[in-house]
């Protein structure tokens, strides 16, 4: 890893003009019918705030049956905040993330990013996302994978940006390699670099390190903290690891399942940047234990 910030600060003024042009490639997957707000030059916008108010989500189950996946989820996330959604598998935390991506529509309630429907940010290419499946294109090189968001947005590829992202996530020497030649950890680094390519307003991470071993995972957590602190982008991390959530997040939202509800929200107020020593401190362990117990509690 390199010193955070050094590469990016010199980059931020370069791509300021190459941002969204409303005339190019409008998204036709968009689900929104609300009037599209005037498009704003993205470089003038800081990190966005997110809000979920009274969100419910039902999935069809068989012919006339539905299952309630999310029940009355309300959550406000401040610009630049790092929030972890923590819960057992099947608690609906990934559904929350998919709602924020615009991949799902809520059955009830409202999902807003910077006051807009998520599909509007999608249409403007303002969201960054990384999944547990790295979802890299196997036929493209690492550099081409990171450059993909530019191509999808119909923008000229900013090669300096791609290079500095590869340096940021520590895989610059593998730029010409293809995903299958990389280890699982390196693939996730590429996936995160890709998510950051267009300087998104929101970074959405769904168990990005879920398939990695414990040691690699801890190292990736440190690197993710560095990446996040370079431009304090609003980040939502879905995870089932209590340690990961407590180490990285400003706020940890604990969810319980069937139906998915917010059980409690904790604020690990540890000073940043957080170092590996924190992982061995009693305060850290106290909070981890407390949240582990909260996770084990049966919902009332």
């Amino acid at each position: 890893m390199l010193s955070p910030g050094a590469e990016l600060s010199s980059e931020s003024d370069k791509s300021a003009d190459g941002s969204t042009d409303p005339s190019i490639e409008h998204d036709d997957i968009s689900i929104s019918t609300s009037p599209v707000l005037p498009h704003v030059d993205a470089s003038e916008i800081g990190p966005a705030n997110l809000s979920l108010s009274g969100v419910t989500k039902r999935f069809p189950l068989g012919r006339n049956d539905t299952v309630l996946a999310l029940d009355d989820i309300s959550l406000d996330i401040a610009p630049g905040e790092f929030v972890a959604l923590l819960g057992p598998s099947g608690c609906g935390k990934s559904t929350v993330l998919r709602l924020l991506c615009g991949l799902e529509e809520p059955t009830g309630g409202d999902v807003r990013i910077r006051g807009c429907h998520p599909s509007e940010l999608v249409a403007d290419h303002r969201l960054g996302v990384a999944f547990q499946d790295h979802a890299l294109l196997p036929w493209a090189t690492v550099a081409d994978n990171v450059a993909l968001p530019f191509k999808v947005a119909g923008q000229p590829v900013d090669n300096d940006r791609v290079r500095s992202l590869l340096e940021l996530v520590g895989i610059a020497e593998f730029a010409k390699a293809r995903p299958k030649q990389l280890s699982g950890g390196m693939r996730q680094r590429v996936s995160i670099a890709r998510a950051l390519a267009l300087r998104p307003e929101v970074l959405l991470l769904d168990e990005p390190f879920g398939a990695l071993d414990a040691v690699t995972r801890r190292r990736m957590n440190l690197e993710l903290q560095d990446i996040w602190s370079t431009d304090q982008i609003t980040t939502v991390l879905v995870t089932h690891s209590v340690e990961e959530a407590v180490f990285l997040a400003d706020r940890v939202v604990v969810m319980t399942g069937r139906p998915g509800r917010i059980q409690t929200i904790r604020t690990p107020g540890f000073e940043r940047p957080r170092s590996p020593e924190l992982l061995r401190s009693p305060e850290f362990h106290e909070l981890v234990d407390e949240l582990t117990i909260a996770l084990d509690e049966e919902p009332a």
Binding site: L103, V122, F131, V152, G154, L204
Partner: peptide
Amino acid sequence: PAGSADVFSVLGSSRL
């Protein structure tokens, strides 16, 4: 490839 369809959707890809 697994997950790639979601990535393209979130990146705001046109159908073409």
